[in-house]
Simulated assay, not measured.
Amino acid sequence: MKTKVRIDLHILQTVPPANLNRDDQGNPKEAIYGGVRRSRVSSQAWKRATRMQFADQIPAEDLGTRTRRVAGELAKRLKACTTLDDEQAARIGSALLAPVGISAGKKAGATAYLLFVGNGQLDAIVDLVAGRATELAAFDDAALAEEMRALPIAEQFRENHPLDVALFGRMVADIPALNVDAAVQVAHALSTHATEAEFDYFTAVDDTNEDDDPGAGMIGSIGFNSATLYRYATIGLNQLHHNLGETDAVLDAVDAFVDSFTRSMPTGYGNSFAHRTLPSLVAVVVREDQPVNLVSAFEKPITAPQGGIAERSARALATEQQRSVELWGDKPAHTAFAHAFGKDTEAELAKAFGTSVTFTALREGLRAQLQGYLA
C-alpha cells in the first residue's frame, strides 16, 4: 500500500447518571476544556472495554492476553497437552521465556511488567516443546536452558499477531524487537457540554435488624455525572496491514474494531447505575491525508435551551466537519453516518458526512472502500 489511509470514527453517545471511569478519589474523571469542566472517560478505559467486546465475536485463540503471568500461561498449556505435573510444567514454562530476555518480576513465575501476547502465540511456543516435554523435564537447569536457546521462541512473539495486539500495539521497553506499533489511536471521551459532579448518598439496611435497632447497616456515597460524550478513534490502515499482512485479516480487524468500539461501554459501577446505552451518531471518514479529531466543535460548550444536548452536538459536529473541509481543502475519500435523530438534523449531517445508512450498511460500505485500497 503506497497511499496513506486513515479511518476516523466520530461518535456521540449520551450516558445517564454514571461513574464510568473513576479517578483516585473514586469520582468520575474530568477535564477542563473550553474553560469549563467536562466529563471525561480515559482512552485506556474505552480500549479495554473494546477488547472485552471482541470476545463476543472473535474466538479466544485469535485474541491476546495482557498478563504478568506469561510463564504461568505457558505452564498451564503445557500441562493440558502433556503428562507433566505442576512443578515440571512451571519449570519448563519459565525456561521458555529466559532466551527472550523478558525481565522477571518479584513474584515467582511473574514478569516485571504486563505483556500483551497472543493466545495463538503462546500455543505456538508450547508446540515447540510439547512433543519432548517429558524428556526436557529430566534435564538439569543448564541443559534445559541450552535447549531453550536453540528454539525460535522470540520469533513466535514477533509473528502472527492476534487482532487486538495488531490494533493496540505492544511496548516492551527493554526488548525493542518485541514492540508492535499500534494501528489505532483512541482519544479521551469528553462531554460536549459543561458538567458538575454529583453525589449519590445511600444507605443499606441490615435485614436482621430488630425493631429497636432501626439504623442503617451501611452508609456511603458514590460520585456520578451524566453527559453526552464525543468519542473519537482513528485507525491507520497501513500500519494495520503491516501488522497483519493478509487483506482479509485487515478488513476483519477494521470491522471488528468499528463494531466493538461503537457498542462497548466501560463497566465502572455498572450494577449501581445500569448506564449502558448505544450511540445516537456514528460517522466514519476515510482520509488520505491525516487523522482529524473534531473535538474543536465543542470548544464552546453546547447548551440546550431546546432540542436537547445530543441533537445540538450533532449539528455542531457537522458544522465543524464542513468547516474543516472548506478551510483545508482535504475532501475525504469516503464518508457515511448512522444516526438516531430527526429529519432536519439528518439533513445537516448529510452535508458533512454523506449518506445516512444503517450501522450494518456503514460497516459494509467501509469494508468495500478499504478493499479497493488493499487490492
Rank of each mutant, 00 (worst) to 15 (best):
Q156V: 06
S226E: 14
M218Y: 15
L251F: 12
V41A: 11
A297C: 10
G354S: 10
E155P: 00
H339F: 03
E299P: 04
A352V: 13
G354W: 02
D24I: 12
A368Y: 01
G101F: 09
A71V: 07
L370K: 09
L229K: 06
I58P: 00
V36N: 03
N21V: 14
A375P: 00
E320D: 12
T303N: 05
S324I: 11
N179I: 06
T3H: 12
P214Y: 12
G217V: 12
A297H: 10
G215W: 13
A189Q: 10
A98F: 02
P17E: 14
V180C: 06
S94V: 05
D86K: 12
V292P: 00
S356E: 15
K2L: 09
A361G: 09
I222G: 01
A124H: 03
T65W: 01
T358W: 08
V100T: 02
R51P: 02
D181R: 15
S43L: 10
E159I: 03
L240D: 05
F224Q: 11
L12N: 04
A112N: 02
V357S: 08
T303C: 00
D211F: 07
D200T: 06
C81G: 06
G26M: 13
P332I: 05
L374C: 10
N225R: 02
D85I: 02
A314D: 00
A60G: 04
F202S: 06
D140K: 07
A338Y: 11
R323S: 05
F54M: 12
A18E: 15
D289E: 11
L114W: 09
F337A: 07
D213Q: 12
A197D: 14
I58K: 06
Y33W: 04
R315M: 07
P99S: 04
S42L: 06
N238H: 13
G236E: 14
E348L: 09
R170G: 00
S226A: 15
F353K: 01
K2N: 08
N293V: 09
A89M: 04
V284E: 08
V129S: 04
S260L: 06
A75P: 01
I7M: 07
H334F: 15
Q306P: 00
D255S: 15
A90V: 01
A31I: 13
V172K: 08
V285C: 09
Q13R: 15
L115N: 05
A112C: 04
Q53A: 15
T355K: 15
D181C: 07
